[in-house]
């Protein structure tokens, strides 16, 4: 049973122009996104730059104003509400960012960075607070002597782990992770990904994992949605997407991932070029006259693909 539903989420930005600077058009950054989140699962949101994947994440947590649509959390509509600082939603949904460095106040010590959410959401005595912070450090595998250090004294991977520690401080239900490992080196990325999986199984967390890296998403996510120009192109389980991709855009994306098998690279190149040709030839089947993606249609219990009515009948 899902604990949170996103219904027809829209985030539009006005484009102003004309003599009186009136709204002449809109950017459809997020254009009718519907999702459901279950406990302990990881949801991947994949797309190229400008697809609206980050905006979706920010709109869910409340960093972007939602134009229309609903965010239902445990039966309550929490969309655009002026929430109290310590509301349950704010506590239960946390976010980590790609650039963990700039998301931490450089003039605060680790102690205060980790204590901030605790002071916000939990009424703990000083001793209990201290204890909780030590627990958090133990979770992310750091010793207590980092408490008095400043963010710049840490490496990229350590900072990302501190960012995660801050996010899990108040036992959240879900963490929105916006490109959490994109800025990290391969070996450090592995550390952080392993660690995210560990705390997930330990605390039953859900993740909304936003990334452009299809390899990382495949490794992390149970359920994946591919986004293009603010809309979902295809959504399904990991197998649905990677084994049985339906939409031409998904195919194109998958064929572009570099593979670490140099032996087969010629075949892949040919295949990639075939997909590219098909992509250009069959665009009209997958995009409407405005270049937008069609609404999603179910093709199996878990797998939904954007396609026109005619295409669906053809199936």
């Amino acid at each position: 049973m899902s604990f949170m539903q996103i219904k027809d989420l829209n985030v539009h930005y006005p484009i102003r122009g004309g003599f009186f600077n009136t709204i002449t058009d809109k950017v459809y950054a997020v254009d009718g996104v519907t999702m459901e989140f279950e406990k302990g699962k990881t949801y991947g949101l994949v797309g190229e730059s400008g697809s609206g994947k980050s905006t979706t994440g920010k709109a869910i947590i409340g960093l972007e104003k939602v134009t229309s649509g609903q965010i239902i959390y445990e039966g309550d509509n929490v969309t655009n509400q002026r929430r109290k600082r310590n509301s349950a939603y704010n506590r239960d949904i946390q976010m980590i960012f790609q650039d963990s460095h700039s998301s931490m106040n450089p003039r605060k010590r680790v102690l205060d960075i980790l204590a901030e959410p605790i002071r916000n959401f939990m009424k703990l005595s000083d001793q209990e607070e201290r204890k909780r912070i030590k627990e958090l450090l133990a979770i992310v595998g750091m010793s207590e002597d980092v408490l008095l250090k400043y963010p710049h004294e840490f490496s990229g991977g350590q900072k990302q782990r501190l960012g995660i520690a801050r996010a899990v401080a108040c036992n959240p239900k879900m963490i929105i992770a916006d490109e959490p490992v994109s800025a990290l080196d391969l070996s450090v990325q592995a550390q952080v990904l392993n660690f995210m999986k560990d705390i997930q199984s330990e605390f039953g967390l859900s993740y909304l994992f936003i990334s452009h890296d299809l390899g990382v998403v495949k490794h992390m996510c149970d359920h994946i949605s591919i986004m293009y120009k603010g809309r979902f192109v295809e959504t399904g389980t990991r197998n649905d997407i990677y084994v049985n991709p339906q939409h031409i855009y998904t195919n194109r994306l998958l064929s572009a991932i570099p593979n670490i098998e140099p032996e087969t690279r010629m075949e892949r190149k040919i295949q990639r070029q075939d997909v590219e040709v098909k992509y250009h030839e069959e665009q009209h089947k997958y995009y409407d006259e405005h270049g937008k993606v069609y609404p999603l249609k179910s093709i199996s219990e878990t797998h939904r693909v954007a396609m026109s009515e005619i295409e669906q009948e053809g199936l």
Binding site: S155, G157, L186, S187, Q189, A190, Q191, L193, N194, K197, G215, V216, K218, H219, M220, R238, N259, I260
Partner: peptide
């Protein structure tokens, strides 16, 4: 170790290879 820390090389439920230290 580097090759082994690429997510692609793994089964989804496996741990990625992590190099000790920094």
């Amino acid at each position: 170790s580097l090759l082994n820390s690429i997510p692609q090389t793994h089964d989804e439920n496996d741990k990625l290879e992590v190099i000790h230290g920094m």
